[in-house]
Amino acid sequence: METRTDYIIQVKDLVKTYNHGAVVALNHCSLDVKKGQVIAIIGPSGSGKSTMLRSLNLLEEPTSGEIYFNDVELTSKKIDLNLHRQKMGMVFQHFNLFPHKTVLENITLAPVTLKIQTEEEAKGVALQLLDRVGLLDKADEYPNMLSGGQKQRIAIVRALAMEPEVMLFDEPTSALDPEMVGEVLDVMKELAQEGMTMIVVTHEMGFAREVADEIIFMADGEIVERGMAEDIFAHPKMQRTKNFIDKVL
């Protein structure tokens, strides 16, 4: 039973606990994201931001609650999760490029293995995307020859090569040297302008303010406040949000 909604992602009453309930990482969180929206999740460390993001493609298995992607319930046991994950790109804090594969192989591995593209097509797509992020000349290098900023741009390309409908970013610039943050954020900005649906866990307040349509502020495993970037930064409604914004700005 599928009822069409405008939402690309819906999270209903998500709970995640560890150690048989001793640690509550997410406490009844609900969230919806429309196609084309860019959402930034901010909050102090340990607030459950990453857990929330990683739950969206079920890298974290929720303790309870439901997650819908294009109105398909991912938390149901009846669906083929791998099929839906193909359409949800993910970028990690530590890049997680495959060190035993060249840049090109990193990008083409999934599309070719999953028979979404032929080897020729995948190579074409990969080179085109690499060109876009200015790393065409690195196609045959191995990841350990690249800088952090280059690795992260390639990780973004690897996710994009699957032609995802939504991109999940898990603190994509937190492991980068300061001078490399810009080059990664630029790629993300460009993506946002092209209308990609994006959910970004970030500590880059400038980026959140400039690029995100909406900001979600999380603390202690709860979504405290959600609103337009300007409202959250300039006139937060909740005291906890205000305290955090005061500290980081």
């Binding site: 791998n82 495959f98 035993h100 591995l109 293995t113 996710a159």
Partner: peptide
């Protein structure tokens, strides 16, 4: 092998077996 390798592979839609064979075991 770093746990992130399996996560990256699974996030791309590879199955557990494919990720094991193509990403984890070679390393």
């Amino acid at each position: 092998v770093d746990h992130g390798q399996m996560e990256a592979a699974r996030s791309l839609g590879l199955s557990q077996g494919q990720a094991m064979k193509l990403v984890i075991l070679p390393q």
